[in-house]
Every structure is written in structure tokens, then in C-alpha cells.
Design a protein around this nucleic acid. Structure first.
Lengths: 145, 145
DNA sequence: TATTGTTATACTCTATAACTATA
DNA sequence: TATAGTTATAGAGTATAACAATA
């Protein structure tokens, strides 16, 4: 009797896994370069882009980026020094400081977002059905805990 | 007369682009955690994994990782202090130092590689044709200059 | 002279722990 | 007492510039 086990060494799967690693490295690097073109570090760009979606208390920024809250102080300090972000008081709780992008900060965030063409270009060559299939595949990858 | 231009704001494409960003963030973080479980930083894990494929001179490590050669000195120092990597002389050129994994380093590199199940799992749910399509798509993304 | 690897320096990111001001 | 944000500290990664050994 033959027992079917998952073949972890399926060559095609391994090739895809390696390609995913390569895409991640490429994307990450392109993101750093795009940030640098805007005079930002990667971490600063990530925080600014996050706040451009929605202003957030310091602690919640840390939760989203999965790092310690103490790190956010310095990153927001540097964004604030460049007048891209402001610390605003929270009406309900005087301990809380809400970080929000300035108008200039919002502009930089938009420009940064628009400059991330890397991932967009290859998608142009796909049919709608292919993009749908890719979307579902990626959703599975993000959703898997 | 209507001119057809690429629609950069196609909602499906934007969704896929955002998903790619999410996958990259997820993968990157999982890699850091896998490295940490082996007592390594992300950079150390990347260098060790690279050397496990093939020993390389210091300068070539920097080229592969797209960083300055001076950074590699410290990373290899720390890997060498833990006896995961050795600096070996190059027969032809006495200026060159070839970094090569020790036996223990090779073991750690294999263990690290095996622990990167994150990307592999969701692929199991795909048909062979889907995986082929995904492979071609990823190849396009990596290959695009 | 040019190249390889290193050192020295400065900046940023990161986690940990202790502190402050509020709650 | 608990929580939000900060400060202090130490380790690591990064780029730049200058250096020693070798080509």
C-alpha cells in the first residue's frame, strides 16, 4: 500500500519558491531606492506611507510595522524635522500623540507611491483572468498564518 | 478618435500591486524571524546562504547583496566569530580572501533554508498549470530591468 | 597606478530597560 | 496601577573616505 506524502522537493515548487525570494529581494531594494530618491530611508518611507492612509497614534504605528514603540519616536522625529509629519494631540487622551502627514508629507507619499512602477509593469502583460488568478494566489499567501 | 492609453489606475492591477507589497513585507519579516531562530541577523543569514551555494571573495559578496564591500567585513567577521564561515586565501591573488562556510555553517544554511516554509505552503494548493503560470509571471518581474 | 580588503566615521534602525505624564 | 510616549543604551547594518597589501 502506497502512502502519499507531500513532496517538498518538487522541482517546480522549489523554482517558484526561489523566484519569490528573488522578487522579494528585488522589490525591497527598489523600495529603498525609491525612498532614497525622496531623501527618505526605507523605514521613514514606510511610516509616511502608512500615515498617508490614516493618521495614527505612535503605538499603533509600531504595531503595524511590528517593531518596538521606542523606535517610532526617532523615525517620526526625523520626519517631523523635515516637516513631512506632525504630532497632534488626541482629544480624548492627553497621553496619546497622533502622527499625521503635513500637506508636503502627503505630496511626498503620493510621489513615492507613483514611483513604485516596478511591480506594476509586468502586470500589464497579463490578461484579466491571469491577474485574477494571481490576486487569489497572493491573497492566500498573505492570509496564511 | 479615441486614443487608448495604459490605465495606471485599473483597480485590479492596483489591488495586485498592493498584495505584492504585502507579500514582500510578510516574506521579509518571516525571513528575519527564521534567521533569528538560528541566532543570525537577516544580513548574516543572507550572506551565509549565499556562501552555502558557492564560496565567494569579499567583494563579490558585496556585489551580490548590492552593498558596499566595507560592510561585508563586519558581517563575515561576526559569522567567522561563530565559526560558521572561514576566510580562505585565494591561490591566484594574494589580495583576495574567499569566504566559505564551515561544516557547521553549511548545516545552519540548510536548516535555515528548510525553515522557509512560508512561501511553499500556499503553492501546494495550486495546480501544475497554475504554478507554471506563476513561475512565468515571477520570472518577468525578476527579469525586468 | 589600480584593485582587494580593511579601518575609521557617522547615521539610522533595532530591542531592551527605565523614566514621565497621564489615565 | 496601568498605559502612551520618550529617553538612554548597546548592537548591527549602511555609505563614505582613507589606508595597507598586493597586483
Amino acid at each position: 500500500m502506497t502512502v502519499t506524502r507531500p513532496r517538498r522537493t518538487d522541482p517546480l515548487t522549489l523554482e517558484v519558491v526561489e523566484l519569490i525570494g528573488a522578487v522579494v529581494a528585488r522589490y525591497y531594494q527598489e523600495y529603498e531606492e525609491a525612498a532614497a530618491r525622496h531623501g527618505l530611508t526605507g523605514a521613514q518611507a514606510r511610516v509616511l506611507s502608512l500615515l498617508a492612509l490614516e493618521p495614527l497614534p505612535m503605538r499603533q504605528i509600531a504595531q503595524r510595522l511590528k517593531c518596538e514603540p521606542s523606535n517610532i519616536t526617532g523615525i517620526v522625529d526625523r520626519l517631523e524635522a523635515r516637516q513631512l509629519v506632525e504630532r497632534q494631540p488626541s482629544p480624548g487622551d492627553r497621553r496619546v500623540k497622533v502622527a499625521a502627514p503635513t500637506e508636503e508629507g502627503a505630496r511626498v507619499a503620493r510621489s513615492l507611491r507613483d514611483s513604485l512602477d516596478f511591480a506594476r509593469e509586468p502586470l500589464a502583460g497579463l490578461s484579466r483572468d491571469e491577474r485574477l488568478a494571481l490576486r487569489d494566489m497572493l491573497k492566500t499567501m498573505v492570509g496564511a498564518e
